[in-house]
Each structure stands twice: as structure tokens, then as C-alpha cells.
């Protein structure tokens, strides 16, 4: 496998993991603009646990899961105040959370502050790919369980869900915490993949892009974030190589501008995201069968 391809595949794996981290809260109706905050916590914890010189010097097999679990614990504690907010306030609160985390880590001398932090252990594609597949499979399984159904019902209508005996608050807390777990996992894996992390990697634009992966992919089914992350990773690269192939600097340089226009058009023509439940039902032929049965 060429170096370019494996580098791109690593980015894809990482993007898919962080997309599911934001998908899980989104599937239960919460827009989370704090992906950067979780990534910073996971990345720095993972790096610090792993580092021989500055940190504890744990093996990578320990540091990554520990970082993910610790991030999940933080997300759990945080979910109580944050979930008191609704709608646009929740977007702003998660956004403020990410900025506070970034501000604190920038001032932590133990992890290098603004200069960034080197991470020792290296995780290449052979580590990332299986973890990514595991994350995707478990999210699919999760969404097909009773809990997944509860998440969907909370997303669609909270009042009706609680009338039918779903504990809305705990579903939302669980979805947020699981999102934190995956966010921390992403951060730790990112640190070990690139062996160097800095707060600037996970700024506002990062959180915005991740939220876009999920919303463009669609929040109705677990296929959504998978396709969203794929779209966001592959399309700019394709536009770049297409631009290089036809010798047009305009396409190569302007690929993100084209991309922004694509997002706007996408929202105009298919605002539910790429994948919807109706579309899946049609693809699987389930919709037709149900109609025939009734």
C-alpha cells in the first residue's frame, strides 16, 4: 500500500470515529458543537499517559482506552449541566465548553502549553482500521437495540417518548457520555497516529466540520456519519487530484470553496442528509413488503 493511500485511509478512519462521537448525541436530538473539546481531552490524556518523559509511560494498549474512558467520565459529569440547555443554547454551551478546554490546555505547562506535546507510541493504520471497524459495528448494533430505538424516539418527539415510558433524561445522558467516549478515543488515536498534538488542531472549525459530517450524512440512521465522513474526506481529495489532472489551479485551490457551495446546495435539495430511513427501507425492499402486508 502506498504511503499516500495509507495516510488518507488513516485520516478516514479517524474522521469516521469522531463522526460517530457526534452522531450518538445527534441521533437523540442534541447538536454538539464540542467535538474539539473531547478530542483535546482524549488526545492530551492519551499522550500524557503514554509519554515516558513527561507522563506516566504506560503502554499504548493501556493509554488509549484509559484516555477514552476518562473522557467518557468527564462527558458524563458534564452532561448534567449541559443537558439542562436546549436547542441553540446547547450548541452554544458545547461550543463554550470546547473553548474553555482549549484555553485551559493552552496554559498547562505539563503538556507543553501552546508549543504542543509530542506523543511517543505510534499507532499506524493496522491499529486504526480494526478500531474504526469495531466502532462502526458497535454503533450499528447499538442503534438496533432497544436503547437505539429509545434514542430515535427522543430525537423525534421527547414528550411522546416519555409517555411511552422512555427515561428521556437518561437516554440523553447516555448518548452524550458515549459520544464523549468516542471523542476521547479519537483524540488518543490521533495523538498516537501523528505523534504530535497541539490545541490548534482542534479549533472551532474542527468542531464545525465534524458537526457537518453528521448533519450532511443524516442523523436518522447509523449509515449517516459513515457516509458523511467519507464524503468530507474523499471529496476534497478527489477535487484536488481532479484539479491536478486537468491542470486547473482553480479547482485545486478552490476545492474548499466548491465544497462550501456543495454543502449549501445539499441543504437546499436534501436537508435530511444523504441517508434517510425511507431511503434505506426502499433500498432493502422493506417498505414495499410492509405495504403489501397491510
Amino acid at each position: 500500500m502506498s504511503g499516500y493511500l495509507s495516510a488518507q485511509l488513516s485520516i478516514l478512519c479517524l474522521n469516521i470515529i469522531i463522526a460517530y462521537a457526534i452522531f450518538l448525541p445527534a441521533a437523540s436530538g442534541q447538536l454538539n458543537l464540542g467535538a474539539g473539546g473531547f478530542a483535546i481531552i482524549g488526545g492530551y490524556l492519551g499522550g500524557w499517559l503514554n509519554s515516558d518523559f513527561d507522563g506516566l509511560g504506560l503502554a499504548m494498549q493501556l493509554s488509549i482506552p484509559l484516555a477514552a474512558l476518562a473522557t467518557a467520565a468527564i462527558a458524563f459529569l458534564l452532561s448534567f449541566p449541559i443537558l439542562r440547555t436546549r436547542g441553540v443554547y446547547m450548541v452554544l454551551a458545547t461550543f463554550a465548553f470546547a473553548e474553555v478546554v482549549a484555553g485551559i490546555v493552552l496554559n498547562l505547562e505539563v503538556v507543553g502549553g501552546a508549543a504542543g506535546f509530542p506523543v511517543d507510541g505510534h499507532a499506524d493504520l493496522s491499529v486504526l482500521a480494526p478500531i474504526c471497524v469495531m466502532v462502526v459495528v458497535s454503533c450499528f448494533l447499538l442503534m438496533s437495540t432497544r436503547f437505539g430505538l429509545a434514542m430515535r424516539s427522543v430525537h423525534d418527539d421527547e414528550n411522546v417518548a416519555s409517555l411511552f415510558g422512555v427515561n428521556v433524561h437518561w437516554v440523553r445522558v447516555a448518548a452524550f457520555t458515549l459520544g464523549g467516549l468516542l471523542g476521547g478515543l479519537y483524540g488518543a488515536l490521533y495523538g498516537h497516529q501523528y505523534n504530535y498534538i497541539e490545541v490548534q488542531n482542534w479549533n472551532v472549525m474542527f468542531s464545525i466540520y465534524v458537526l457537518l459530517y453528521v448533519l450532511l450524512g443524516g442523523t436518522q440512521s447509523p449509515f449517516g456519519p459513515l457516509l458523511g465522513a467519507l464524503f468530507f474526506t474523499v471529496v476534497p481529495e478527489l477535487l484536488r487530484s481532479f484539479g491536478a489532472a486537468v491542470g486547473s489551479e482553480l479547482i485545486a485551490d478552490g476545492r474548499f470553496a466548491i465544497f462550501g457551495a456543495l454543502i449549501v446546495l445539499m441543504m437546499a435539495f436534501r436537508p435530511e442528509g444523504i441517508v434517510t430511513r425511507t431511503m434505506l427501507e426502499r433500498l432493502m425492499g422493506r417498505g414495499a413488503r410492509e405495504k403489501g402486508a397491510t
Binding site: 464545525i208 457537518l212 454543502i263 449549501v264 437546499a268
Partner: peptide
Amino acid sequence: LVSSLGFLIM
């Protein structure tokens, strides 16, 4: 919200 983010990027 998403459209406006698209415009921002563009």
C-alpha cells in the same frame, strides 16, 4: 445552521 456554515466555508 448548516447552510450558513457552508457559506462561511465558501
